[in-house]
Design a protein around this nucleic acid. Sequence first.
DNA 1: CAAAATTTTGGGAGCGTTCCCAGCGCGATA
DNA 2: TATCGCGCTGGGAACGCTCCCAAAATTTTG
Lengths: 336, 336
Amino acid sequence: MKRVTVKDLAKHLLLSTSTVSRALLNDKNIHWETKKKVLQAAKELGYRRNSAAASLKYGRSKNIGFVVPEMVTPFSSKVLRGIQEILYPLGYRVIITECDEDPLRERENLLLLEEFNVDGIIINLCDESKNHDVYQQLLDRGIPLVFFDRMPNDSLNVSKVLVDNFLYASAVTEHLVSKGRKRIAHIMGPPSLRNSQDRAKGYKEVMDKHGISDPALIIEAKGLGFEDGKNAVKTLMEKQIEFDAIFAFTDTLAIGAMNYLLEQGVKIPQEVSVASFSGTELSTMVYPQLSSVEPPLVQMGEEAARLMLEKIKNFDVACREILLDAELKIRSSSSF
Amino acid sequence: MKRVTVKDLAKHLLLSTSTVSRALLNDKNIHWETKKKVLQAAKELGYRRNSAAASLKYGRSKNIGFVVPEMVTPFSSKVLRGIQEILYPLGYRVIITECDEDPLRERENLLLLEEFNVDGIIINLCDESKNHDVYQQLLDRGIPLVFFDRMPNDSLNVSKVLVDNFLYASAVTEHLVSKGRKRIAHIMGPPSLRNSQDRAKGYKEVMDKHGISDPALIIEAKGLGFEDGKNAVKTLMEKQIEFDAIFAFTDTLAIGAMNYLLEQGVKIPQEVSVASFSGTELSTMVYPQLSSVEPPLVQMGEEAARLMLEKIKNFDVACREILLDAELKIRSSSSF
DNA sequence: CAAAATTTTGGGAGCGTTCCCAGCGCGATA
DNA sequence: TATCGCGCTGGGAACGCTCCCAAAATTTTG
């Protein structure tokens, strides 16, 4: 019933706790035979280290916090994969918290993670201008932060992993234009995210360049859900704004939009082409498959994890910003 | 830079650590004014409790482990929501681990969680016959387990939350039959899951009842991914097995199947109806929207969390098995 | 006003690890 | 033989917190 402790092992083997501990920690100052015996006994008695005690003593917990807006979409899950890929083998654990796009909840989660003694936090924030005091507080306490995908709006002493939103948004728009589309609507994300603004900027520049801009074509989604995408298109149609293509902030929005269009009997891509940004598996699961800019999510996680390890090793190492290449995947929703 | 501890607070306020601790823990044996002062100072100095130390002393960690095959699909995410809904307000944290449908990884995760001192583990297993020794070991150590959705094949002293697979599988099949379908194919899940078998049984019974059974119509998916669904249908078509409906083990499989059919120019639902089990948001995101048996996932999580709390309070309380009602959502993929 | 009851505070052990410091045995060197 | 170095082991403090026990301060009772 009770947990087996180092002390129990020591008593059982007639050794001191120090020696047992040394064996368990793979210390070199121990006879190989003793070590073998200890490991053997540990296995037999089912010893499991009490990481609370270890982390108390050691000062570090080997826990990394992961703070994301949501885990319902595969986006964060993929990033998490990458993170675990790197951190798992090194004995780190990842504690995941969702904030449901609510800055207040994000705040709570961050504080919880601090209490939890995490060695660092990898975060995709939900509002670029909120919670800066907490970020700073964590940094002041020596807890490194690594941001991915979405960035805080002013300069914090943190490392970052991101893709060039402007660049790829331009590319998507350019692609739609190249297919002969002129009335390209943009379902924009919340303005509290730089990503939204940057993607909108990329879109706008290309539209301007071709002289086909029209403010009426830009519609701001109320949120980031499937329904929000639906509603956005619905609004466009109700306002009788003509369009022959849609570029959506995320694939979830795009898919919502597509769904509404198909319900209305609109043909995709013949009548309306659709494309999005930050595509995930979802893009390939819908029909027609959705064209999208796909950031290398797993790699994003890996890089974030590596940056974190750097920071854990030495908190004062210079911050780095890693810009990843994304891929514009052209699928049936925009090619005909 | 350094963390503020109880001792620091005590020194600062000229009080004893006991008193400070009492204030922080909302103990009744303390003057309200002192308490106020302590809380005030704690806030000012930015005190955060060291949960490692607390859990070491207290013996409990207020951590619950969550072990699932994957988090890429919204299935587990929804359940997690329910769990957090209940546990969050009570000061519990949830540690999430994915095993990627790999029993070995599940094993590692379980052991990791034990080391982590979790007060209990809520689990959706990935192979009903593996890892029983670990389950038992955890139970022996007084760590309660609560299973949801997928169950271990023999009797462990655990609580469970599930839906009636047989019943609802029958219902789906019956629904397809009622639409005049006679060649209903079943994309079955891995036989290492009772769910697969039960759903297949439900399907089979209805098919038998109507005298339209044909073993050729049952195809076992290689895995549980989108591609596996595609491949299953591909195989069926390559084998020239005629079918006018598909009942798939999960929505991911169904969506893969739909995708392949649509690619082949098959009309859904006119030529082939599609329906699935354990549907999530995904079912409504595809076009045509997918008919599916939808278990109340959030509620499933809530019930699991409640069962867990019961067990944490008293490990020896009788185990309970909660059977939830699901809902057969008929959508366009099977109605015309 | 003393004694008892009650409220409020302080001292300090102990949770399970890790790790520094010291000690032991033993062979090599002087 | 005395000294040193080396490999290994044991003792015990410390991490930050909680909680038992006892002491002090305060109020109530006879």
